[in-house]
Amino acid sequence: MEAILKAALPGIILIVEALVLLVVALLHVAYTTYAERKVIGHMQQRLGPNRVGPRGLLQPIADVVKLLAKEDIVPLGADKGLFYLAPFISLVAGATSLAVIPIWNRFVLADVNVGLLVILALSSLSSYGVILAGWSSNSRYAFLGGLRASAQVVSYEVAMALSLVGVMLMAGSMNLSEIVKAQISSPFKIYALPQIIGFFVFMVSAIAETNRVPFDLPEAETELVAGYFVEYSAIRFALFYLAEYFGMVVMSAVAVTCFLGGWAGPFEVPGLPFFWFLIKLYALLFFYIWVRATLPRYRYDQLMGLGWKVLIPLALLNIVITGGLKLWW
């Protein structure tokens, strides 16, 4: 009995850790929606949610309860199986990426050697959810949204992957913990300084990858009503919503890990090992929200032009420069 327990203990600990991480991440996602509404509200001279709970703090929970209670409608002629499946693909792909992100040097669920590749793979997997949702809804708007999403994700993924190559070259590893450790021991402390081009390309393509303003074409409200999830209602709609914010959180976490030095900070905060990681994460999330409040939306062809003609050449240039410098030193 004891032997079995001993053998199972690491597994149990892992499951508990995973659950804790998932719950914490879900809370973060829920309150990112709250923060977005509140911050944009104040940027636009209004108050944002302020009715449910003190200062509207219970608003995300009320939203979830409301969406759970709504009717789950499947349009006639929809491909039912795929229609049900699509939001889960998006959400699972978004949430799984969290596993490889080192939040602290002693807290990383899956310390895999190809962490960056896992993240890239999962983020392209999440686009399947979008494409399938657009396809299976049997609606013109959703179909157009799905088409846009597939084109956008495919082209911006190239730019994003290329922008991370510079980081891999400098750190000499694809393990995310190793990348953070390499940053801490490097003279710059964070890679955002030497990899400034890579950081820029990454941030832009991360916004595109998560379908946020100014690249929110797949769900452009004023053009395609709601884009790929126009036919979704109730909890499936909420899942897409969650997936989008999970994407935001994951992309910000990757940016923090690869470019901003992960858990390291200018000084240790006693008792709060995650402090610096979270501060950087919140700063990036605020940046996302700020961009949304400020910028108009690109047009489809302009977006493609930006991706292929500006970001990818920039990322390639960055690789050449990084490689050259690495060779000389």
Binding site: I40, R46, V213, A293, T294, L295, P296, R297
Partner: peptide, 13 residues
């Protein structure tokens, strides 16, 4: 017009 093109803040201003 601004909202249609995606600039959301101008709308409320």
């Amino acid at each position: 017009h601004a909202l249609d093109i995606g600039a959301m803040t101008v709308f409320l201003y």
